[in-house]
Design a protein around this nucleic acid. Sequence first.
DNA 1: CGTGGGCGGATTTTT
DNA 2: TCCGCCCACG
Length: 727
Amino acid sequence: MDLSPILSPLNDAQRAAVTAPVGPMLVLAGAGSGKTRVLTHRIAWLIQVEGASPHSILAVTFTNKAAGEMRARIEGLLGIPGAALWVGTFHGIAHRLLRLHWREAGLPQGFQILDAEDQLRMVRKLLRSQGLDESRWIPREVVWFINHQKDEGLRPKALKDGNDPTRRQFIRLYHDYEEACARAGVVDFAELLLRAFELLRDNPEVLRHYRARFRHVLVDEFQDTNAIQYAWMKLLAGSDGAPYIVADDDQSIYRWRGARVENLQQFQRDWPQAQLFRLEQNYRSTGNILQAANALIAHNAGRLGKNLWTSGGHGEPIRLYAAFNERDEADFVTQRIRDHMQQGGERRDIAILYRSNAQSRVFEEAFLSARIPYKVYGGLRFFERAEVKDALAYLRLLANRDDDASFERVVNLPTRGIGAKSLGELRVAAREQGSSLWRAATAAVASQALGGRATAALAGFLQLIERMAADAAPLVLHEQVDLVLTASGLIEHHRREKAERGEARVENLEELVSAARGFEPEGELPPLDAFLAHAALESGEGQAGEWEDCVQMMTLHTAKGLEFPVVFICGMEDGLFPHQRSLNDLDGLEEERRLCYVGMTRAMRQLYLTYAEQRRLHGSDSYGQASRFITELPEDLVEEVRPRIRLGRPYAAPTAAAHHRPGRRAVASEPVAPGMRLGARVRHGKFGEGTVLNVEGQGPQARIQVNFERQGTKWLMLAYANLEALS
DNA sequence: CGTGGGCGGATTTTT
DNA sequence: TCCGCCCACG
């Protein structure tokens, strides 16, 4: 058998990890060290050399994208379709198990999946129905509490209130929320995982079956697993099993959503015989970038320890730019992008990374006026758009009449005279009967319990749904979707809307029909159910328009797993990155540092770090110090880029607005005062040293704004300030 | 029943 | 500053 496709692309460490004898294993894989390659080649190795059946392999990831890539690479390697392999996300696999074993899991056969927004609505409804004040019981916090408990594997019964009335209320809400979900036959994301765990835990024959089947459980990005994911994996693999775990503790950036890096140590305790491999050779970045990243992450305590190296050259130094303000920061990046393009580079080579989404706006404005195409990642995804969710809600009602969230969403959309009052009465009735809204509505129509008009309207709605269901039954999926859009009046509704917005919505709805047309259901589910699950589990990344050559903009979190020749990490100021809310907490600070490490290791050839002395955020100005992460980098690897001085001499500092309005050159009149340009260092007799942030006015009227290191920011009359220019 | 204005809040995100 | 949400009004 020719094993060279599997083995020849591997270095020694990778090959050792791929060819190790079957047994529990932990692969510590640094950024850019070929983690996915090891995982996929291991699977190929298991099948081709160890004689494992594709049937016996379960590979788990966190994102659909990662799962898709892995499947594609395995298929390429083995040259066979990988249909027999179970490759998917934790949620996707949990869903698959629950569909197969809905009865044992205690779910209705046609259960539906709530996404984050549905869940929030559901909790809001619950709070309202109990007459609770939403400013006291904040829906988001209730959701957070519920999800957090589920992530920890805890049901309401298992929770103690510790005599804390607030906590008692939260637990009660969790309990009531569960009942509401059960009544509606819906499960949220966290519930998928918890149920899948309980399914195995409480059904010995099911567990036995899957343990016997999945002899090879492989987990990617293991440092991101939460408690329930770990418990599920442990149960499935069994203590005598051979889980194959790939992880990088230095890239653990999701502690805040329940991920536990400690699972790595737990894994070593639960499988003490597990072999440990380290992948430290990096194929992505230059030596300088790696050295800097290593130096940064070395400031974290309690790491498993890992040092990335490369056989390539040092490359260019890391460049640091201290901008006057956020606009100057954007202008600097713009200029560097132009340079890059002039040297024949492509825009898609470049990524702008930032800590929080709000930072993208300034860059967008700068790029718009500089006519640089860009793409911002992380907005609303296709299946999350309101109009798409409306349409999906109709489809979900067709699949499951008891889905209350969907019922509420569309019962009066487009408006058909079923107002808040009737709906309120329905809710009360449903709660009293312990039934779904649909059943309560049917009963209310039969008994004429509501007013005449409302009853007629409601009866119309019920008939509409039943008629749609009947008409849709013989159709293929995309025709069903099309039918629902027309019959429900949704398309018509949006056509009547104000031009621009309505048009976009109609287009999105038409896109939904195409999505249904292109959808290939796999498995035994009816196509409609499969499509709905797909819509909930895959938010629809990667729609049209992907391939224009664009500058890539995203948060540092989103950038994990990606790589770019040129990376800008922007907004490197204490308070922004590391974020304000992590400054006072060591664990939080370490996670921010890992986030910075993740960002730096995205860069292949060039890495820029920028920060702004002055930043306008949330409408008010703040004055930041450079991020502590910058000072944690070795000085000899970092080259500070000085603000360029136009025409080769200090120019009259224009007002900030004039300076930054694109296309309008700063008018180079007489220098206000020598050395008083923006960004210059100055000394004041009383206030000490500082940086010039802004200059306004001319001659004797001129005022200057300086950020003094000790005294903060002040406006001074230039004529009287007696500032001394430093170097 | 739909919209506009006032108010408060404003990391990070996948599924 | 800006966005989303709630309520009051037309």
